[in-house]
Computed example of a mutant assay.
Amino acid sequence: MALLKVLLLLLGLGVSVNSAVSLQKRIIGGNYCDKTGRLFHVRLEGMSRSHRILCGGSLIHPNWILTSASCWTSKTGWINVAKLKVHPGTSKPRIPRIKANPVVYASEGSQHDIMLLKLPIEVSDVPLAQLPDCSNRPKIGDTVQLAGEGETNNRQISNAVAATQLQCVDMPVVEATHFLPTYGHVFSAKAQNKDVCYGDYGSAVMFKGKIYGVISPGGTDSECHSPVSIMDVCEYIGWIKTTIGSK
């Protein structure tokens, strides 16, 4: 996970911030994810000749990835790929190119920041993220787990670089589901000295072993922010199940 405040801390201590490795050792609030969990995590990359966008995603069906709509670039000259088996990094990632058009949720002519991507091949050897039990949604004060591969030292979303390992962080929910204009239905999580940043968008927010949220920029692309805006998967569960053909 990423935390912008660590840059100011390191500068104040006179520590060099030129090395990505040195920064990864000083991330505040995050730890390496358990090697047996989050095997469904997907690294999404959009690439052009001069830029690269990094995001996370979750395999929720053998053919479908759930992520943030902010993670897709359809401009001419860009290539979008999905890297499976990036966690825990014990095997070589599989990299299918995403050829199908993304399916973005839309209501009354407005798109929300949640998206499904259909893979060109069916995946049979990666565990799937479990969809939520929406009768038992996280409430204010409940702890959810966020994860991502964003790096602390990269504020440019157009040139994001993946961290060496997937990192997880626990945060309590501080705001219940509400509607955020231009983004959609979100809830929020926040904890002192913990945050997410570029490269973490689209990754799963877990509660009791199930995916209840998708990390979203939540209205700002200028810097890492707190509290974290999370797309509420339960608000879109009907659309998700209809799209992927699940009961």
Rank of each mutant, 00 (worst) to 15 (best):
M1V: 15
A2K: 14
A2W: 12
L3C: 14
L4T: 12
L10P: 00
G14Q: 11
V17G: 04
A20L: 11
S22G: 09
K25M: 10
I28F: 10
C33H: 00
R38Y: 14
V42E: 06
R43T: 09
S58G: 00
L59R: 03
I65Q: 11
C71L: 01
K75A: 13
W78N: 08
V81Y: 11
L84N: 01
K85L: 06
K85H: 09
I95E: 14
R97K: 15
I98A: 05
A100K: 09
N101P: 07
V103C: 00
V103T: 03
V104G: 06
S107K: 13
G109K: 05
S110C: 13
D113A: 05
M115T: 07
L117E: 07
K118M: 07
I121A: 10
P127A: 09
L128I: 09
L128F: 07
D133K: 00
C134Q: 03
I140S: 01
T143F: 09
A147I: 12
E149N: 11
G150L: 02
T152R: 04
N154P: 06
I157Y: 11
A160K: 01
V161K: 12
Q165L: 09
V174D: 06
T177M: 00
L180A: 01
P181L: 03
T182V: 12
A191L: 09
V196D: 01
V196H: 02
C197M: 08
C197G: 15
G199K: 02
A204R: 10
V205F: 12
F207S: 04
I211S: 07
G213Q: 01
S222L: 13
E223D: 14
E223G: 13
E223Q: 14
C224F: 02
C224E: 03
H225G: 11
H225T: 15
V233Q: 00
T242S: 15
T243N: 04
S246E: 15
